[in-house]
Design a protein around this nucleic acid. Sequence first.
DNA 1: CTAATTTCTTAGGCCAGACTAAGTTCTTTT
DNA 2: AAAAGAACTTAGTCTGGCCTAAGAAATTAG
Lengths: 222, 222
Amino acid sequence: MVITQAIEDYLKTIYLLGQGGEVATSAIALKLKVSPPSVTGMVKKLAEMKLLRYTRYQGVELTPAGEKIALEVVRHHRLLELYLQEALGYPWDKVHEEAEKLEHVISEEFEDRIAEALGWPETDPHGHPIPTKDGVLPAVAVRELLAVETGQSATVRQVSDGDPGMLRYLASLGFFPGATVQVLEKAPFEGPLRVRVGEAEHAVGRELARHVLVSAATPAEV
Amino acid sequence: MVITQAIEDYLKTIYLLGQGGEVATSAIALKLKVSPPSVTGMVKKLAEMKLLRYTRYQGVELTPAGEKIALEVVRHHRLLELYLQEALGYPWDKVHEEAEKLEHVISEEFEDRIAEALGWPETDPHGHPIPTKDGVLPAVAVRELLAVETGQSATVRQVSDGDPGMLRYLASLGFFPGATVQVLEKAPFEGPLRVRVGEAEHAVGRELARHVLVSAATPAEV
DNA sequence: CTAATTTCTTAGGCCAGACTAAGTTCTTTT
DNA sequence: AAAAGAACTTAGTCTGGCCTAAGAAATTAG
């Protein structure tokens, strides 16, 4: 059973989309930028390999074996992101793209050495937890910024990567892991949020806000 | 015109085998561990792409365009080898294998950043010159250890990578770039050489000696 | 509850890059 | 210079991973 790069990419994507549930083939197609029939084909193959369970017309769910591989790839990805930033001085918004290519190629040895160089870190530059070597994803209690009550404060925990443009924009507003944010006002319907981040106040669209995850404010630690 | 990893590997291999001349398809097949027909097929395609000149039943030679790509890959490879050793503490004999995978994947940005971190180095851990960004391979005047006169001394310049076992063995005898070696005696026919490396004396087979390149002794710099 | 729409799958093909088996052409030997 | 051997190529296949076009199931609408 040979695990190709394509397979790794499917498993990783399914894992990230799936966090606790079935994943639709169309969602996978969208994320991987391939056609839906390609996904169906690959998904059948992965089911044969016992890396996931597949029910026609319904969806897909990783088996423990599939999840294990996915977590290895995610670990590689997040360690690489952090390493690129910390050791090579990559800007925040460029680490994702490079890690995307390297994650499929590095050896166990490489993984260990950068993990060591980084002091066995637990989160990547965007605040995402790094799975451990034995395939456990440290749980973090976060909720969407949208869920914060008007007037309440919270600490930014994660900012979703993927789109460098959005990431740059969020960064320009001050949304980094660790930053404190206060929700001043939520416009009704799908209107924007008024928030305070550090000194500044901004209006933030809902779509954008959905990419910011926070935990209860812990001002002391900032 | 899409340059795949396979194409990069062919061009690199042809370049390294070719240093000034035609390369036989069988040599490529041997090095890349593919069948001769596979090489013929690929070589035809590369000729179409104007990356090399190909004469049936004869051999192959890179065009400037092909050589440019080859040199980029070689630059990646050698920078990576050095980075793995210097920055991540890889042992001498393991850098090659990892670099072999990474060389096809890293971006220009990555290349620049590790080059900078290393202080724009000129040779890799095995003593091979690193091509510059604009595709020039710094010339180094070296000859085979076998060519050294009996009684003469020389400075080790390069040790060919590729086979980790051989590399480890050579290292155990003291053959690093920079080491001084004296040829004490050459057995006739294909017999071994007696050499002194540092304090120790060793008998070295011709095959092994062929992998050690030296320049005129410059004791001062050691 | 049927019809329209969306979502997913099947069918059939393409391309890259590898392979084996069966020729060619070049080289060496005698 | 003919024959034997080595080196290289052609022919025909296979596999992985993708695609489009067309059909089946599930969902939503009326």
